[in-house]
């Protein structure tokens, strides 16, 4: 049993005034210990909801419609809030997008990290706690932790706050870390530092990570495997090499082609036509069909299943059906 996290046919819906929003639709994936899975997609594609639904951090109008979540061999799909409390922090933890709002403004950073440590070790002594907090701050690269731990979040810069959030997330030695766009709100140089930190910690602690982002550049730097999400579904999943050099889904092609690195020297950037569909009443067939220049007739009729490319690489597009016309990928790896 090497799968640390296994999600099967998960569907999550929000009930809103305009109807039921199917934010995550029939998603299956697994995560091995120590592995980094990047989840890529446009905003509103359900990547963040996916993470929060596994940790059960969604608001009360969200519901798991079907499917199962198995962590470390235990099926937690039906776990109540009380049971989840025992898992959070120890089994899995989360880092959020905006470090400016993720910390409580009226508590010292040290106290907030200490809180997280105490969850794991309730009986820890005062000096032990202090040492552990210092050690965590040191781990995430915060200089002079003894001084910094007495300070409030507003004394910290964005990058430092994100480091503090990581210290909090890592305080309980979690097996799985969910990182929800952890570098999106940061400057390029700070982003690079935080990504380095992620890799460092990955190497030191071997924490399995689900890394949510919309930036393919970031994905390339951190991911072992990549899942591409569109309109609540995983449309393609594979190792980083497979996705970057041998993508099969037209949506993945579109995303890569719209990167400026791909259009270097050209007059215009590639854009995917149209807009993502609303998830209240998704259209019949493949939801990407109306934006897909390679769409086949069957795309408007029936949803494509996950076609196997290799043992690690799957894509949900009818182009992979043996009856489909052969299409040459327009992105054969990006030449930078």
């Amino acid at each position: 049993m090497s799968e640390l996290l296994e999600v099967k046919n998960l569907s999550v819906s929000f009930s809103t005034s305009s109807g039921e929003v199917q934010a995550v639709r029939n998603v299956s994936f697994s995560l091995k210990a120590g592995e980094v899975l990047a989840v890529v997609g446009e905003s509103g594609c359900g990547k963040s909801v996916l993470c929060k639904s596994i940790m059960k951090l969604l608001p009360s109008n969200a519901k798991i419609k079907q499917g199962s979540i198995t962590v470390n061999g235990a099926d937690i799909t039906a776990y109540r809030e009380r049971d989840m409390c025992r898992l959070r922090g120890k089994l899995f933890s989360m880092v959020f997008q905006d470090p400016m709002t993720a910390l409580n403004p009226t508590m010292t950073v040290g106290a907030q990290i200490a809180e997280a440590v105490r969850v794991r070790e309730p009986g820890i002594s005062k000096t032990g706690l202090r040492d552990r907090v210092m050690q965590l701050m040191d781990l995430v690269g915060i200089d002079s932790p003894g001084e910094r731990m007495e300070q409030y979040p507003y004394h910290f810069s964005g990058g430092m706050r994100q480091r503090s959030v990581m210290a909090i997330a890592l305080a309980g030695n979690p097996r799985i870390l969910f990182a929800d766009e952890p570098t999106t709100a940061l400057d390029v140089t700070i982003q690079a530092q935080i990504l380095d930190l992620f890799r460092d910690i990955q190497k030191k602690l071997g924490t399995a990570t689900v890394f949510v982002t919309h930036d393919f550049g970031v994905v390339a730097g951190v991911a072992d495997r990549v899942a591409v999400m569109y309109a609540g579904k995983i449309v393609e999943i594979g190792t980083a090499e497979e996705i970057f050099y041998d993508a099969r889904h037209p949506y993945t092609w579109g995303l890569m082609k719209s990167l400026p690195a791909f259009s270097k020297g050209q007059d215009t950037l590639y854009t995917i036509p149209g807009m993502p569909p609303t998830l209240v009443n998704p259209p019949k067939g493949d939801v990407f069909a109306c934006r897909n220049e390679y769409a086949l007739e069957i795309d408007y009729q029936e949803e494509p299943p996950m076609f196997r490319v290799t043992d690690t690489h799957y894509a949900a597009t009818w182009l992979l059906d043996e009856r489909a016309p052969k299409v040459v990928s327009p992105v054969g790896g990006i030449k930078v």
Partner: peptide
């Protein structure tokens, strides 16, 4: 509804502590 409550939940704090130590205080 703020993010820091989400983080507090994610780090495994109990609802009572989040409510009194974090939300109420703020």
């Amino acid at each position: 509804r703020t993010d820091y409550v989400l983080l507090a939940k994610a780090k495994g704090l109990k609802k009572r502590r989040i409510m009194f130590r974090h939300c109420l205080r703020n």
